[in-house]
């Protein structure tokens, strides 16, 4: 069982008279995780509505009508991780939308030419297992060292300047590997050595090749991305697209997830962007899920590893905007700063 908490505070230079909000910070419930306990609070206090968006992400929305210069919301609770392999069977009708490029995950010239240089066959073309095989030894070499420099956690602050401050206190969970993480990594090196039954090809899987091949491509692409795209906080913002992040030459978890999702879709593998929390203290995290053998399999390109037990999924979508933790609409307010804190512990 994991205990999580997430808090966002927004401070306004001038009081805000009216502010609409849509908050998506409640863990999803699916085959992999169950929400056991939840407390949610918001300040100033106001009436909230509850629902789910088109992707099934839980949302809390409403309107602040009392003038305020500080807006705070906090969610806290317990999540039970039901399956360590963390996979979810895909419903056919929910797959297609994650196959097409969209929003912040549209490849431009930079990503297109890089993708081409990787030698991954285009969708529909037959792919030999050798294509991804060549990357594997390199991926292995890079894994350990690169991760030590990773500082994780980016949310979607409205004010970038404020983010630096918020992030300075952020240390991410990657230094505290769980036992499971290790086995996940080991599995990663092997590429297609999957403990799961990939034989059952789902109806959504209409491309050539088995899910095993796709898993191998996912791993290879993740290794390459991690190797060639350095983790550099402050270069990008919440509105940066995959293509922009790539040409800036570095970024944070949102950028890794955006680029990764873009690459997977270019390879013909449906992929979705995931927003969530990770064990440790800091801010929110982002990763991606790819359709392999009819199941959504999560990968964390920021850490170059498959997702393990220490992850809590909040939402998913085509890109970060679909599952933004906070979307607000306000008048006046002036400059704003944001303080985010998140924690997950066992």
């Amino acid at each position: 069982m994991l205990h999580f908490s997430y808090r966002m505070e927004i401070r306004y230079e001038n009081p805000v008279g009216r502010c609409y909000f849509t908050i998506k910070c409640i863990p999803r419930e699916d085959a992999r995780q169950r929400l056991l306990d939840l407390k949610f609070s918001i300040s100033p206090e106001t009436t909230c509505c509850f629902g789910a968006d088109a992707f099934g992400n839980r949302q809390i929305y409403g309107c602040e009508t009392i003038p305020h210069d500080r807006f705070v919301f906090q969610a806290e609770g317990d999540v039970e991780i039901l399956r360590t392999d963390y996979e979810e069977k895909a419903a056919w009708e929910n797959v297609g939308i994650f196959r097409v490029s969209h929003g912040k995950c549209v490849p431009g010239p930079g990503l297109t030419s890089w993708y081409r240089s990787l030698g991954i066959a285009a969708p529909g073309e037959a792919r030999s297992s050798g294509v991804c095989g060549q990357d594997r030894p390199l991926g292995v070499a890079v894994l350990g060292e690169a991760r030590s420099s990773v500082v994780c956690g980016q949310d979607r602050p409205l004010d970038i300047a404020a983010l630096g401050e918020a992030r300075s206190s952020v240390v991410c969970g990657q230094d505290r590997p769980l036992g499971i993480a290790a086995s996940g990594e080991a599995r990663g090196f092997e590429g297609q050595d999957r403990p799961l039954g990939f034989a059952d090809s789902a109806p959504g899987e209409d491309r050539g090749g088995s899910g095993g091949d796709d898993y191998g491509i996912c791993m290879a692409l993740m290794h390459r991305l991690h190797r060639e795209f350095p983790y550099i906080p402050g270069k990008t913002s919440v509105s940066t697209t995959a293509e922009e992040a790539w040409s800036l030459g570095g970024g944070v978890c949102q950028d890794y997830a955006h680029i990764y999702v873009t690459l997977l879709r270019m390879a013909g593998i449906p992929a979705r962007y995931v927003c969530g929390l990770i064990i440790g203290e800091g801010a929110s995290h982002a990763w991606a899920e790819a359709l392999c053998g009819g199941r959504w399999v999560p990968f964390d390109p920021t850490h170059d590893r498959p997702v393990t037990e220490g992850y809590i999924k909040l939402g998913h979508g085509r890109d970060a905007a679909d599952c933004a933790i906070n979307r607000g609409l306000m008048w006046n307010g002036g400059a704003q700063s944001q303080i985010i804190s998140a924690s997950v512990e066992q």
Partner: peptide, 18 residues
């Protein structure tokens, strides 16, 4: 074909399931 659905500018993912 799927290409004429999801890539269409008129298709709104927000309406899924409503």
């Amino acid at each position: 074909p799927e290409d004429f659905i999801f890539a269409s500018s008129g298709y709104l993912a927000e309406c899924e399931g409503v």
